[in-house]
Every structure is written in structure tokens, then in C-alpha cells.
Design a protein around this nucleic acid. Structure first.
Length: 113
DNA sequence: AAGGTGACCGGTT
DNA sequence: TAACCGGCCACCT
């Protein structure tokens, strides 16, 4: 098995959850890690998103940090891309932070089974 | 082969 | 309020 394939298998669980985030909602790195179990740390979720950043099938813009900040914005094509995509879905962003994040927040632990 | 490094997090100072 | 700390764990050098 090649390196690229192994990498994809390893991060696959993260990608599957990210793909389930509904339009107009967002979750956090830590929430995904908690949902997947103790083996996966929030840092690893960030690493997985980094590895996936050109995959158009993964809505990476819907993953932010626990405070709703768009900490991953510099990894997009332009630093404004992440905010643009969120606002296009009706999510308001101010000062690189999602407005009313608690209402936009999508917790995989509660919304998935 | 060992140590540095994250698109992080919760708690403490 | 902001800075810091320890835990996290696969990757990279």
C-alpha cells in the first residue's frame, strides 16, 4: 500500500464526519476528535484537514476551532475563501469568528448515531 | 531514532 | 483578559 493511500485510510474517519456537516452549520476540531474516540486528538483532526485541503468533496470551511474562529483560513486558496464559503451558506462571520457560534455549532456526538 | 511540530483544547495562573 | 501548560499522536527530519 502506497504512502498516499495509507494517509487517506488513516484520515478517512475524519473526512467522513466532515462530509456529514450540514450546509450552514459548523463544528470544531475537538468535537470531531471526541466523537471519533480517544485515539484521535484535536491536533490530528487539524492535521487531517491540512492533508485534505485540496479535496473539493470535503467541506473544510465548516470546521473551526472551539471558539468559532476560522483558524484554518490561511490554508485555503486565499485567506478570505473560508469566510466567503461560510457566508455563502448563510453563516455570518465577524473578525474571523462565526457569529452566534453556539447556534451554528453542529455536534456530531448529538446529531449522529 | 529521537525530538520538534501542528487548521487543538480545557484548565489554571 | 491574556498568557501559559500539559496532554494529544502521527509525521517529518
Amino acid at each position: 500500500m502506497g504512502k498516499k493511500e495509507r494517509e487517506y485510510n488513516f484520515f478517512n474517519d475524519v473526512y467522513e464526519v466532515v462530509k456529514l456537516i450540514p450546509k450552514g452549520r459548523a463544528t470544531s476540531y475537538g468535537a470531531i476528535a471526541a466523537y471519533l474516540g480517544t485515539k484521535m486528538s484535536a491536533r490530528m483532526v487539524g492535521w487531517a484537514m491540512n492533508a485534505a485541503h485540496n479535496d473539493k468533496t470535503i467541506p473544510a470551511h465548516r470546521v473551526v476551532n472551539r471558539n468559532g474562529q476560522l483558524t484554518g483560513r490561511f490554508h485555503f486558496k486565499a485567506p478570505t475563501t473560508m469566510q466567503y464559503r461560510l457566508e455563502k451558506e448563510g453563516v455570518k462571520v465577524k473578525d474571523d469568528t462565526i457569529v452566534d457560534f453556539s447556534k451554528v455549532f453542529w455536534d456530531p456526538h448529538k446529531e449522529l448515531y
